[in-house]
């Protein structure tokens, strides 16, 4: 599939053409918008556990690693069996 080689150019163009100071998440941007629409709203529940700093990076990496393992392991096993 030659088309699939487009993924990387597209990704590069995305990063190079978009200019941003801080690359915030859309959820953070939405939070601001909510405060603008309803300044009185107070979140009624906070996360039970909030990973600080690099721990969040670690837990996101673990999520991706679990997923990568599941895809790679079972796909590889299917290929061997076929």
């Amino acid at each position: 599939m030659k088309l699939q080689r487009l993924i990387f150019p597209i990704f590069l163009i995305l990063i190079l053409t978009a200019s941003a100071q801080e690359w915030r998440g859309t959820d953070e941007v939405a939070e601001e918008k909510i405060k603008e629409l309803n300044p009185d709203y107070e979140p009624w529940f906070s996360p039970l556990f909030e990973p600080a700093g690099e721990i969040e990076t670690l837990l996101f990496s673990i999520q991706a690693a679990i997923g990568g393992f599941l895809v790679g392991y079972f796909l590889g096993r299917n290929e061997r069996e076929s």
Binding site: F11, A20, R24, S61, Q63, A64, G67
Partner: peptide, 21 residues
């Protein structure tokens, strides 16, 4: 594999044209 794919992709925060991820 299906679950793994959801795990991997939803862990990847990508930059986009709006300047947010």
């Amino acid at each position: 594999v299906s679950l793994g794919f959801i795990f991997v992709l939803s862990a990847l925060k990508l930059p986009s044209v709006t300047g947010s991820c």
